[in-house]
Design a protein around this nucleic acid. Structure first.
Lengths: 194, 194, 194, 194
DNA sequence: GATGAATGAGTGTTCATTCAT
DNA sequence: CATGAATGAACACTCATTCAT
């Protein structure tokens, strides 16, 4: 990648980060381009130099989440019991949202259509879940009464449920713990029966 | 109720129904008052005669849902097994959203903060769930490892999860069936163990 | 006057009084017809039964002031020294505005074009001032270096000045006293010189 | 000042001038932002680029008047007799309102709360009057029976009176001459007596 | 690359006025 | 006489987007 292109990427990322920070308090639609520019210390003209439309920001934002998952969470999923891996993945996602130093980025959850495709490519969270459920069934750890697609779908629904609920309650409780309990119960119900 | 007041109520309800219809395609915030008026065949002035602020519509809308639940779903919850009642309640809610001839009103789910209070009073869905979980534990049908409040909370999170997901997929699948499977699994995990 | 017409007059007067009361806090233009109706306890329909336009209220209002002056102040102007009568008239006007139990009607001053004609007829305040200045000159009490019309005009300008100023300061000082001093100085300068 | 900032100032001033011109016929409150924009040949968006609220116009307007007084009238007040200076100041204000080629800007008078503070700072007209009355009393040219504050207040009341009256008569007479006569009489009454 | 002035359609909301009941 | 539902033009203000510099 050329130096110029790299600088371009970095600038884009900075703007996106700024937007995420602001979205902690204000939903995307209620955030004006000039708000973002003021916070990012750039001019409106510059914004439109890096993004051709306001909604381009969202695409950039989702890509950022995907990258974080791939780099920080996926490498940890090496347990023998796939149900443990599934729970770890949910926790990884929850903790990214609730996020260490990213407290403010919690609204990601509200936007995040985390199963659907982005630019045609499937989101990595979906792909990884499919993989884990598939392997879990192969290993006889997870009930085979439903296909992996269906399990993935249900799992994501529950995961989205917690995220959205947490968001609606303004991050007022421990997302990690609630995710643990709810998805734990779900996985318990999926235990393969003899 | 006087004839005049009745007419008032009816007109208000008509406007709300129109808004619900439109919200199938467009989220509330992106819906302008004049859109609603055009669709309802009334003038902007009339709108503000019935609702003092745009956001009043939301309150009206939630009240409508509450009333429907109370009148059409609650009377059916007379099974001996409280888990069956819980599932029936979830189905009732789902079917109201997916709604008979109301296909288009599905976006209710996106707004619906169905656990929190409205005007200070708790929403009836929340109250009823508390009641069913409590009785279920008394009868020994449901695990007592978590308090009814927590169970209610988790149940609503899952329920909200399905609704929101279905909404995000533009009502592209059978909400009733997915609700059945997901909440069924959840209740299965809650079965009291000897 | 028929009983019906009398009742009509009374109702009109009631509405005007209500409007005056409200105008203590809110200028006429910022006062909506429905505000007035709510305060007067009548329907909008009724308002338009008694006044064909909102601005009709103003005409009614001015007539009310004229009547009060004629009935309550003019009879007192019987001093030998016309300058005393002139001061009494100014005081009478000021005290009507500041008004005993009419504290709230102070904004009259802001509207009051008290020299110009109303419906073609000259306002009584103007007529009376002309009369007093004329007699004062005849009696040699007031300088004849300016015609009565001019003196009247200047006197009204000063009188209006105090009223408006007092209004702008939200009635924050004693209107009567300031009127006394300012118009007193004015009359002092008009003393006929040998 | 940078070229950009200068251009900004000029544009703002142009808009204010336009508003003043329109206010000859229409009081500020009855003047819509879009009227002003149409007359100024700019878009509504541009208006809000230069003024964050409609009422900002008023502040700008008053500042303009203050600046004009300070630059064009104050330097002329160098007579030995302070009463002459006082009259010159009144004439200067009147002539600014009636204004050379600014016939149309006469409504300034109606808005002008010319004694009260603007942004916390006292208006220069008030300060200058205080100074002149104070010096006049020291020199024994003006009666000491009232303090300078009171004299300033009364003088401003009379000055406002003429302005408002002239405005109400739609500039139908010579403001300069009337100011001369009225304030002249006032100053005559204030002559220090042995 | 970067800037920010300019645009104008669009927003939620108000309100004088009419008129069927 | 009295009501208040209905109207719709008007208002102050916002904001994504363009483009000359």
């Amino acid at each position: 990648m050329s130096k110029v292109a790299q600088k371009q990427r970095k600038r884009r990322a900075e703007i996106i980060e700024t937007a995420i920070r602001l979205m902690a308090d204000t939903p995307f639609d209620a955030l004006s381009v000039s708000d973002i520019c003021r916070a990012a210390g750039i001019s409106i003209g510059s914004f439109y130099h890096y993004f051709s439309k306001k909604s381009d920001l969202l695409v950039g934002l989702l890509t950022l989440v995907d990258d974080a998952l791939r780099e920080e969470v996926f490498p940890l999923l090496d347990r023998e019991d796939e149900r443990e891996n599934l729970l770890l993945l949910a926790r990884g996602f929850a903790s990214y949202i609730q996020g260490n130093d990213l407290e403010r980025s919690r609204l990601i959850a509200a936007i995040e259509p985390f199963d659907t495709a982005l630019d045609g490519r499937p989101r990595p969270l979906w792909t990884k879940l499919m993989e884990l459920f598939g392997r879990g069934q192969e290993k006889g750890q997870i009930t085979a009464s439903l296909p992996p697609e269906e399990l993935t779908r249900l799992y994501l629904i529950a995961l989205r449920g917690v995220s959205v609920d947490w968001t609606r309650h303004n991050g007022g409780y421990d997302l990690l713990q609630t995710t643990d309990v709810l998805l734990g119960l779900f996985l318990q119900a999926l235990r393969a029966r003899p």
